[in-house]
Design a protein around this nucleic acid. Structure first.
Lengths: 295, 295
DNA sequence: TATGTCCATATACTTTGTATACCCATCAGC
DNA sequence: GCTGATGGGTATACAAAGTATATGGACATA
């Protein structure tokens, strides 16, 4: 049986058809020139691709003679990708932050975008590789770590056994067993200044209770909002009966609360900027205590 | 001149070599089976690719007979990609959040990851498309918008002319001229429940002063930190002489301040969770006022 | 009307990739 | 120490995908 009969396409061809569909859906149209520019194929090949796309997805692409390009047809139904707004916006963010090459992202003329970024120390390639290696092989490494302890200014070498990565919304950290203190801790990747000496592990991820056990944060709309405002906030956060439950690892609890603005007593903050409150604050504070974060 | 002489590679081949390099660098090794699995090529072709990679990047790949796969050589020097830890972590995040297909991301066995996410109402495909179209074509649309005004509970149809997108760290919004109020505003994409009736624009992006003009936020370490802690924070944020300047659009000022924890008086917050303060708070408050955010 | 642009298609040719077969080295298990 | 399983390399004949080049058509603009 040939490829043509089975409908199977070569990887490269499928990527191009996917690209055509992406452009039709999100960018309002596609050109032979677009295909040529991105994939470096010849003019006739780009024509063939467009023809093939029309065979595989009838009605999706119609030629707009005025604009001299294909635009999405009325009853557009994606065949090669499941269009996900979150995925598109994620691409747009990567592109805007310079993490993706313009060609790679498939977005031709991105809209004007601004992102509330905050400048942060960067992570070194070697650091990330060393941590990933240690996690993969279940081994320990020594890291030259710049901690935030009250008086120790200079970075020190400490052995640790990482088993996971965490992201708090700003920075990445390694979740690791600290051989010096004999307990699990977070090591911020940007504060690791060097790494050396892979060795035997001190503990496994299964031993990390704070990582493996979760706590339920219960949130609700800020009490000072009007009834209609509360309804909007409830929809924003997918609340039912005025509340929503977030299941969070103890090891991530501090970060989630900080991100949600719930570390302090949110009822005392202006509802204009703080839309939600913690409906179970005493329990949460106890959980934070258990998670080793003393405020 | 042939391709072989110029060193030019077909798009598909180059992707595969890039993939080989990616795996060598970040994932500790690569296999024929990996290439076959991801790109659907035949066994001999995968062999050829590995051979070709070794020709193009001598010494980067060495065969580990024990592990039966290629691993990165000692003097590994990337040829097909510039390894960027931020890009890798961004991929990892997309993968963990389910925004990327496992195959597409090139990360074979991702480490355990947790991300401090917060549940949010989703954006509709049609909404995003309509807004992107309007931005691209400089047109207006009517949106069925659920606003947060104090008493208006029901969503209303309002005409607006979007010219940019903004991301506050949590949600995306359209920066747009509001035809009802006759001024530029932010429309949260998840609160747009419907869209219709493209029409003439009400104003252009160039008219949006709050978007086009910027304000400098000056930050410094929290005064209650010890000297050594301040040094760490200074390095974290790239401060010089105890301060750093962030240039921010007025239209984004509120979001940036919220993200940095600087909406309230940060000196009154615990330095344990709030590491930085606004060194110019009165000016910032005036700027917020100018940005139309009345706290 | 002339010109430029963009799409489509045809032909002859090159490159890339497949299917199949066979060989080699290493390792785990008997 | 043999044996089979696994993973890599390579050769040959063939299929497919893609290129270069040329030609023609539709449409917008000057």
């Amino acid at each position: 049986m040939t490829d043509e009969e089975t409908g199977t396409l070569k990887w490269g061809v499928e990527r191009r058809l996917e690209f055509i569909e992406f452009r039709l859906f999100w960018e309002g149209g596609v050109n032979r020139a677009d295909i040529i520019g991105l994939f470096g194929v010849s003019v006739p090949q780009a024509s063939k691709d467009l023809t093939l796309y029309q065979e595989r997805a009838p009605g999706n692409a119609v030629y707009d003679k005025r604009a001299k390009r294909y635009v999405a047809g009325d009853g557009f139904a994606p065949v090669f990708l499941k269009p996900d707004p979150a995925a598109y916006l994620s691409r747009l963010r990567s592109l805007s932050e310079g993490l993706t090459e313009p060609g790679e992202s498939w977005i031709s003329d991105p809209p004007a975008v601004d992102i509330a970024v905050t400048p942060r120390r960067r992570v070194e390639s070697d650091t990330l590789r060393a941590v990933l290696d240690a996690i993969r092989d279940s081994r320990s490494i020594e890291v030259h770590y710049q901690s935030m302890s009250r008086d120790r200014a200079a970075p020190t070498w400490r052995r640790m056994t990482p088993h996971a990565l965490g992201y708090d919304g700003f920075r990445w950290h390694a979740r690791a067993f600290c051989h010096v203190e004999g307990r699990f801790k977070d090591f911020l990747l940007p504060r690791i200044l060097g790494e050396r000496a892979p060795g035997d592990p001190g503990a496994t991820g299964a031993d990390d209770r704070q990582w493996n056990e979760t706590f339920d944060v219960v949130i609700g709309p800020h009490p000072d909002l009007t009834i209609s405002q509360k309804e909007v906030v409830a929809k924003d956060f997918g609340m039912r009966d005025g509340k929503a439950v977030l299941r969070v690892r103890y090891a991530m609890l501090f970060y989630v609360l900080k991100r949600l603005g719930l570390l302090e007593d949110a009822t005392k903050l202006s509802p204009r900027s703080q839309h939600i409150v913690d409906l179970n604050r005493p329990t949460t504070l106890a959980a934070l205590e258990r998670a080793d974060f003393k405020l």
